[in-house]
Amino acid sequence: MKLGPILSLISFFSVLSILSVGGSNSVVPEMARHAVEVEHWLTLAQFTDIFAISQATPGPSNLIVALIGFKVAGWWGALVAQLAMMLPAASLMLLVSRIWVTSSGRPWHLALEHGLAPIAVGLIFASGWTIAEGASLSTIGYVIAAVCTLLFWKSHINPIPIIAVVGVLGWMRLI
Protein backbone atom coordinates (compact mmCIF):
# COMPACT_ATOMS: atom_id res chain seq x y z
CA MET A 1 0.00 0.00 0.00
CA LYS A 2 1.54 3.28 -1.12
CA LEU A 3 0.71 6.28 1.01
CA GLY A 4 0.85 9.01 -1.65
CA PRO A 5 -2.01 7.78 -3.88
CA ILE A 6 -4.08 6.91 -0.79
CA LEU A 7 -3.72 10.44 0.52
CA SER A 8 -4.71 12.01 -2.79
CA LEU A 9 -7.78 9.74 -2.93
CA ILE A 10 -8.78 10.86 0.57
CA SER A 11 -8.23 14.56 -0.07
CA PHE A 12 -10.14 14.56 -3.36
CA PHE A 13 -13.15 12.42 -2.44
CA SER A 14 -13.74 13.87 1.02
CA VAL A 15 -14.12 17.32 -0.54
CA LEU A 16 -16.27 15.92 -3.34
CA SER A 17 -18.50 14.29 -0.70
CA ILE A 18 -19.57 17.67 0.70
CA LEU A 19 -19.96 19.13 -2.81
CA SER A 20 -22.31 16.36 -3.98
CA VAL A 21 -25.52 18.30 -3.41
CA GLY A 22 -28.45 16.53 -5.08
CA GLY A 23 -26.79 13.11 -5.02
CA SER A 24 -23.44 11.72 -6.12
CA ASN A 25 -24.27 11.84 -9.81
CA SER A 26 -24.15 15.64 -9.68
CA VAL A 27 -20.36 15.51 -9.19
CA VAL A 28 -19.61 12.88 -11.86
CA PRO A 29 -18.38 15.52 -14.37
CA GLU A 30 -15.93 16.93 -11.80
CA MET A 31 -14.88 13.37 -10.92
CA ALA A 32 -14.16 12.64 -14.58
CA ARG A 33 -12.22 15.86 -15.04
CA HIS A 34 -10.05 15.28 -11.98
CA ALA A 35 -9.49 11.52 -12.43
CA VAL A 36 -8.83 11.61 -16.18
CA GLU A 37 -7.31 15.01 -16.96
CA VAL A 38 -5.68 16.17 -13.73
CA GLU A 39 -4.46 12.96 -12.07
CA HIS A 40 -4.42 10.58 -15.08
CA TRP A 41 -5.74 7.84 -12.83
CA LEU A 42 -7.57 6.28 -15.80
CA THR A 43 -8.54 6.99 -19.42
CA LEU A 44 -11.80 8.61 -20.47
CA ALA A 45 -12.93 5.32 -22.07
CA GLN A 46 -12.28 3.52 -18.79
CA PHE A 47 -14.18 6.20 -16.90
CA THR A 48 -17.19 5.77 -19.20
CA ASP A 49 -17.04 1.99 -18.69
CA ILE A 50 -16.84 2.14 -14.90
CA PHE A 51 -19.66 4.71 -14.79
CA ALA A 52 -21.89 2.21 -16.65
CA ILE A 53 -20.74 -0.61 -14.35
CA SER A 54 -21.51 1.41 -11.21
CA GLN A 55 -24.94 2.43 -12.53
CA ALA A 56 -25.82 -1.20 -13.24
CA THR A 57 -24.77 -2.37 -9.79
CA PRO A 58 -27.38 -2.34 -7.01
CA GLY A 59 -26.64 0.02 -4.16
CA PRO A 60 -25.99 3.72 -3.63
CA SER A 61 -25.00 5.86 -6.60
CA ASN A 62 -21.50 6.64 -5.31
CA LEU A 63 -19.97 3.18 -5.88
CA ILE A 64 -18.05 4.49 -8.91
CA VAL A 65 -15.67 5.96 -6.34
CA ALA A 66 -14.63 2.46 -5.20
CA LEU A 67 -13.83 1.54 -8.81
CA ILE A 68 -11.58 4.59 -9.18
CA GLY A 69 -9.96 3.84 -5.82
CA PHE A 70 -9.33 0.24 -6.93
CA LYS A 71 -7.59 1.41 -10.12
CA VAL A 72 -5.40 3.84 -8.17
CA ALA A 73 -4.39 1.72 -5.16
CA GLY A 74 -6.00 -1.74 -5.27
CA TRP A 75 -8.28 -3.14 -2.55
CA TRP A 76 -7.23 -0.55 0.04
CA GLY A 77 -7.73 2.21 -2.48
CA ALA A 78 -11.31 1.07 -3.09
CA LEU A 79 -12.09 1.02 0.64
CA VAL A 80 -10.41 4.32 1.43
CA ALA A 81 -12.00 6.16 -1.52
CA GLN A 82 -15.46 4.83 -0.66
CA LEU A 83 -15.11 5.86 3.00
CA ALA A 84 -13.81 9.31 2.04
CA MET A 85 -16.84 9.80 -0.24
CA MET A 86 -19.29 8.66 2.46
CA LEU A 87 -18.13 10.04 5.80
CA PRO A 88 -18.35 13.84 5.43
CA ALA A 89 -21.82 13.83 3.83
CA ALA A 90 -23.11 11.16 6.23
CA SER A 91 -21.88 13.17 9.24
CA LEU A 92 -23.74 16.26 8.03
CA MET A 93 -26.88 14.18 7.41
CA LEU A 94 -26.60 12.70 10.93
CA LEU A 95 -26.48 16.19 12.43
CA VAL A 96 -29.46 17.46 10.42
CA SER A 97 -31.47 14.27 11.15
CA ARG A 98 -30.97 14.81 14.89
CA ILE A 99 -32.22 18.39 14.64
CA TRP A 100 -35.20 17.35 12.51
CA VAL A 101 -36.27 14.47 14.79
CA THR A 102 -35.89 16.40 18.07
CA SER A 103 -37.90 19.33 16.69
CA SER A 104 -40.84 17.01 15.99
CA GLY A 105 -44.14 18.60 17.02
CA ARG A 106 -42.86 22.19 16.86
CA PRO A 107 -45.04 24.49 14.73
CA TRP A 108 -42.19 25.31 12.29
CA HIS A 109 -41.43 21.62 11.88
CA LEU A 110 -45.07 20.82 11.07
CA ALA A 111 -45.41 23.76 8.68
CA LEU A 112 -42.23 22.67 6.88
CA GLU A 113 -43.41 19.05 6.73
CA HIS A 114 -46.89 19.94 5.46
CA GLY A 115 -45.68 22.64 3.09
CA LEU A 116 -42.93 20.56 1.53
CA ALA A 117 -44.93 17.31 1.18
CA PRO A 118 -46.69 18.21 -2.12
CA ILE A 119 -43.39 19.58 -3.48
CA ALA A 120 -41.71 16.28 -2.60
CA VAL A 121 -44.49 14.41 -4.43
CA GLY A 122 -44.05 16.65 -7.51
CA LEU A 123 -40.32 15.89 -7.43
CA ILE A 124 -40.96 12.13 -7.20
CA PHE A 125 -43.06 12.37 -10.38
CA ALA A 126 -40.28 14.44 -11.93
CA SER A 127 -37.70 11.75 -11.13
CA GLY A 128 -39.86 9.11 -12.85
CA TRP A 129 -40.30 11.42 -15.83
CA THR A 130 -36.56 12.15 -16.02
CA ILE A 131 -35.63 8.45 -15.99
CA ALA A 132 -38.21 7.90 -18.76
CA GLU A 133 -36.80 10.73 -20.88
CA GLY A 134 -33.23 9.45 -20.65
CA ALA A 135 -34.11 5.79 -21.13
CA SER A 136 -34.86 5.70 -24.88
CA LEU A 137 -37.16 2.71 -24.49
CA SER A 138 -39.14 1.13 -27.33
CA THR A 139 -42.92 1.58 -27.42
CA ILE A 140 -43.29 -1.79 -25.71
CA GLY A 141 -40.97 -0.54 -22.98
CA TYR A 142 -43.18 2.49 -22.32
CA VAL A 143 -46.34 0.35 -22.35
CA ILE A 144 -44.73 -1.96 -19.77
CA ALA A 145 -43.82 1.11 -17.69
CA ALA A 146 -47.42 2.39 -17.84
CA VAL A 147 -48.99 -0.97 -16.96
CA CYS A 148 -46.52 -1.50 -14.10
CA THR A 149 -47.28 1.99 -12.75
CA LEU A 150 -50.98 1.11 -12.39
CA LEU A 151 -50.12 -2.31 -10.98
CA PHE A 152 -47.75 -0.97 -8.31
CA TRP A 153 -50.15 1.85 -7.43
CA LYS A 154 -53.28 -0.23 -6.99
CA SER A 155 -51.93 -3.60 -5.82
CA HIS A 156 -49.34 -4.94 -3.40
CA ILE A 157 -47.66 -7.07 -6.04
CA ASN A 158 -43.96 -7.77 -5.48
CA PRO A 159 -41.95 -5.99 -8.22
CA ILE A 160 -38.91 -8.31 -8.04
CA PRO A 161 -40.26 -11.11 -10.32
CA ILE A 162 -41.41 -8.41 -12.77
CA ILE A 163 -37.94 -6.83 -12.71
CA ALA A 164 -36.41 -10.24 -13.44
CA VAL A 165 -38.72 -10.82 -16.42
CA VAL A 166 -38.18 -7.37 -17.99
CA GLY A 167 -34.45 -7.70 -17.33
CA VAL A 168 -34.44 -10.84 -19.48
CA LEU A 169 -36.64 -9.14 -22.11
CA GLY A 170 -34.15 -6.25 -22.18
CA TRP A 171 -31.24 -8.64 -22.47
CA MET A 172 -33.00 -10.24 -25.47
CA ARG A 173 -33.29 -6.68 -26.87
CA LEU A 174 -37.10 -6.81 -26.87
CA ILE A 175 -37.54 -3.59 -24.87
Partner: peptide, 27 residues
Protein backbone atom coordinates in the same frame (compact mmCIF):
# COMPACT_ATOMS: atom_id res chain seq x y z
CA UNK B 1 -16.86 -5.28 -19.06
CA UNK B 2 -20.05 -7.14 -18.22
CA UNK B 3 -22.76 -6.62 -20.84
CA UNK B 4 -25.23 -5.17 -18.40
CA UNK B 5 -26.53 -2.31 -20.50
CA UNK B 6 -29.30 -4.29 -22.21
CA UNK B 7 -30.53 -5.86 -19.00
CA UNK B 8 -30.50 -2.41 -17.44
CA UNK B 9 -32.71 -0.98 -20.18
CA UNK B 10 -35.42 -3.50 -19.37
CA UNK B 11 -35.10 -2.82 -15.67
CA UNK B 12 -35.43 0.90 -16.33
CA UNK B 13 -39.03 0.43 -17.51
CA UNK B 14 -39.89 -0.92 -14.06
CA UNK B 15 -37.86 1.80 -12.30
CA UNK B 16 -39.99 4.42 -14.07
CA UNK B 17 -43.16 2.63 -12.95
CA UNK B 18 -41.89 2.36 -9.37
CA UNK B 19 -41.18 6.09 -9.14
CA UNK B 20 -44.51 7.10 -10.70
CA UNK B 21 -46.50 4.69 -8.51
CA UNK B 22 -44.94 6.16 -5.35
CA UNK B 23 -45.87 9.61 -6.63
CA UNK B 24 -49.46 8.39 -7.02
CA UNK B 25 -49.53 6.64 -3.62
CA UNK B 26 -48.16 9.57 -1.65
CA UNK B 27 -49.94 12.18 -3.77
Amino acid sequence: APAMQDVLRGVTAVAIALALSVGLKTG
